[in-house]
Design a protein around this nucleic acid. Sequence first.
DNA 1: CGTCTTTTGACAGTTACTCTCATTCGAGAG
DNA 2: CTCTCGAATGAGAGTAACTGTCAAAAGACG
Lengths: 215, 215
Amino acid sequence: MTTPRSARPRPSDDSSGSLEELVEAPLSLRERKKLKTRQSLRREAFRLFAEQGWEATTVDRIAAAAEVSPSTFFRYFPTKEDLVLSDEYDPLMAAAIRSRPADEPFLTSARAVLVGLVRRIDEREHAELYQRMQLTASVPSLRARMLNGSGQPTGMLLDLLTERAGLDAPTLELRITAAAVSAALTETSLYWADNGARDNLADLLDRALAHLQNL
Amino acid sequence: MTTPRSARPRPSDDSSGSLEELVEAPLSLRERKKLKTRQSLRREAFRLFAEQGWEATTVDRIAAAAEVSPSTFFRYFPTKEDLVLSDEYDPLMAAAIRSRPADEPFLTSARAVLVGLVRRIDEREHAELYQRMQLTASVPSLRARMLNGSGQPTGMLLDLLTERAGLDAPTLELRITAAAVSAALTETSLYWADNGARDNLADLLDRALAHLQNL
DNA sequence: CGTCTTTTGACAGTTACTCTCATTCGAGAG
DNA sequence: CTCTCGAATGAGAGTAACTGTCAAAAGACG
């Protein structure tokens, strides 16, 4: 009962796929189909968002475009917002941070890992990332949810911190640290999108995390 | 177009009233009635939340209990969530911070002002404050929105910072600072509620903001 | 009192989301 | 290849949070 990650339960499993699968497990036909449906939903949704905007694009239309029933949509994404906000980077971040020396100051670990990760993501999927952040920054309800925990790394960062400290339950200080880093990540992304991605996201993030150290 | 404060527009005016009115303006009959309606809605809502929980309490029932039409409910609170999340402390905070020497480090100002303010609020309205935070902490959608900007002080803190820096538009660094302080405030409140208000909220906040300084 | 403006209530409509149940389809055994 | 089982889907009905419009009620003010 520490910090709930997402309001609603995920559909069934976390088999997501975007940034080069971590494990190249031979997917069963069933899994491949699920993946296709998921990708199709996301792709069609983003296409429609770009064409007609967020509000004008109803879930029914997205489902129709992806050729599934509206029911199915909600089996893949608990809410329309999750379509945009759900990311699959958390496990990557966690693994990367865990691979760092445990006695390194957390902000140092986080800075190195996050900046590196963001740089690679930005290189490979710049267009997608940008559209996502653009949407997130401009749609109020998305921006609102972006600024918080669901779909954001706060919870995982906190778990990492607690684990590092060898504790069972997080202290106030750990929660503050996690929240601050997470807020920096989020705020930087929004800043980036607000400015039309004029700057390099990874560099901005580096600046942001550096700034956190001398508050 | 910096950081939108709230997703939806406020009903009409910001004549709210809880913590000892700042201005003792002689309210017209109309204004007094509005205030009564607002308070009635909030009171009845919290009563119902306590009795039947968040989800079981529909807007229609709240409106009925307050003896206004459902339409009117939304004229006072843009969303059901705002009923819980909207606070009227922002202007107080702003004024208090502005009264500090402009060359004082921001975190120092913030720490002194926020801790003092929170202490006074907690003394005067402990029960209310606690129920609000309890609700916020336990209802996922509320907790989610709490962790972000809408209804939270991020935007105002940012304005203050920008003003202090003598700038027109906030820099990334200013945004990070505002976000970090805001996150600390939020996270502390949740921690407080999570722990059943065992500790003193003002003291916790002091610890949290101190911690921010030596990240 | 009479007029103007603000607030309200009634009502209809949209949409995100939930729940249930029958059907379909892939997995795996024989 | 077939049969069975469990998982995924589709259909449909239902709920509740909002939105927008319009006419009636009520305060402000001369």
